[in-house]
Amino acid sequence: MSAPTSLDRLEPGRKADVVGVDGPGDMAVRLLEMGFVPGTRVELVKVAPLGDPLELRVRGYHLSLRRAEAAYVQVTLQ
């Protein structure tokens, strides 16, 4: 367990656990339903060559989010 941060701040290869989701309503619902529920393990797999978006691994699949979207997901580092 370590300090809380947001998903966009992870470094490639790092894993973290979701603590909560905020942000604009429809984005929050979408992120929750895509599997970013509290307690879920997430890994930042890769950053796109231009610096954005991010490739994440969550619930057995790979998903790409922009940094701005990933910033809505609070996590604690593993």
């Binding site: 979408r30 790409s64 989010l65 979207e69």
Partner: peptide
Amino acid sequence: ILVSPTPPLVLEL
């Protein structure tokens, strides 16, 4: 004429 927010990416690979 076609104002809309940037669509979220949320793209499965």
